[in-house]
């Protein structure tokens, strides 16, 4: 058990992948912008350096709460990672783990809001408000979009959804719109450009994380990176059938390729768009995306899941 928690698919594995993903992401964005980009050890160096920095908190905040928030966020992301099959290898699974994973993945957003609310700064409170507003705009389409493959494969077990698809057809070919919605939701969840509204630098400095520093900030960043990895794997497993084919090596390669593809798409989205305004996002979310995701559910039900 401790091997599972600490090494695979637990902390060690996800930590390495998070660092790697951050490097690829930063490097890709840099290249799209005509820059060289950071060397491969840069994310690790940043992390270690942040760990060594002085940890300051504003007077009057609940110090225990402030210390607990990033840790809970990290724990939620790591726990979600335990139930995600990687390259066809499923370590833990049970019926309904998709719902648990989705819940665990939405926890960091709520904790993010709480972080803003409990640190007293004005930028943090504004950022926390925005985080919550953004949460309501992307979370519903994200949940509905990910329930698409589940209904399609009559299972709420991620491993089952994945294995089912390897014998029938990848969900993305049936539900391309659903994938788009899930992808959009993932951007919102990770608070990346163009949906980095809660931490919009030129408006509210760093949003909820303005008052965090040192170790706590490092853990927030790590949690966000691990959330990125877990989110990408979740999309690959549910919409691409986890890339499972007969040979283990081919599965591994296909899985890596698909995950990389989604990661690079995230980088492209970051480089391609200006930040949206919160009211524009809310309008987009409630007027376009949620009706679309409901339509998609209706479409699956109309198909009678007789696939």
């Amino acid at each position: 058990m401790s091997f599972k928690v600490l090494v695979f698919p637990g902390f060690g594995f996800l930590f390495c992948l998070a660092m790697l993903a951050e490097w690829i992401d930063r490097r890709m964005i840099a290249r799209f912008q005509g820059r060289v980009g950071p060397p491969v050890f840069q994310p690790l160096a940043d992390f270690i350096k942040l760990l060594g920095k002085e940890d300051l908190l504003p007077t009057g905040v609940n110090e225990k709460l402030m210390a607990a928030l990033p840790l809970i966020s990290l724990a939620a992301c790591l726990t979600a990672g335990m139930y995600i099959p990687v390259a066809g290898v499923s370590v833990n699974n049970f019926e309904g783990d998709l719902i648990v994973v989705l819940f665990l993945l939405s926890l960091p957003s709520l904790l993010y809001f709480l972080a803003g609310w409990s640190s007293i700064g004005i930028y943090s409170i504004l950022g926390g408000n925005r985080a919550l507003l953004q949460f309501f705009s992307y979370e519903v389409p994200f949940l509905l979009a990910l329930s698409g493959p589940a209904i399609l494969n009559s299972s709420w077990n991620i491993t089952d959804i994945m294995v089912n698809q390897s014998t029938s057809i990848w969900a993305i070919f049936v539900l391309p719109v659903g994938f788009m919605l899930a992808f959009f939701g993932l951007i919102g969840k990770l608070k990346r450009d163009p949906l980095d509204i809660p931490k919009a630098q030129s408006e509210i400095v760093a949003g909820p994380l303005t008052e965090f520093s040192g170790r706590k900030l490092a853990i927030w960043h790590l949690a966000n990176q691990i959330q990125t990895v877990v989110g990408i794997f979740l999309l690959v497993d549910t919409y691409f059938g986890g890339g499972v084919i007969e040979s283990r090596l081919a599965t591994f390669l296909l899985f890596s390729f698909l995950a990389l593809l989604i990661l690079v798409s995230l980088s492209v989205m970051s480089a391609m768009y200006a930040r949206l305004r919160i009211d524009q996002l809310a309008r987009l979310g409630w007027k376009r995306l949620i009706p679309l995701s409901l339509l998609q559910i209706a479409f699956i039900v109309w198909m009678g899941k007789g696939f």
Partner: peptide, 16 residues
């Protein structure tokens, strides 16, 4: 302007 709008790519292009 682009940087303040969160549009880093145009910022980089313009300064390049």
């Amino acid at each position: 302007l682009a940087k303040n709008l969160g549009f880093d790519t145009v910022f980089m292009y313009a300064w390049r």
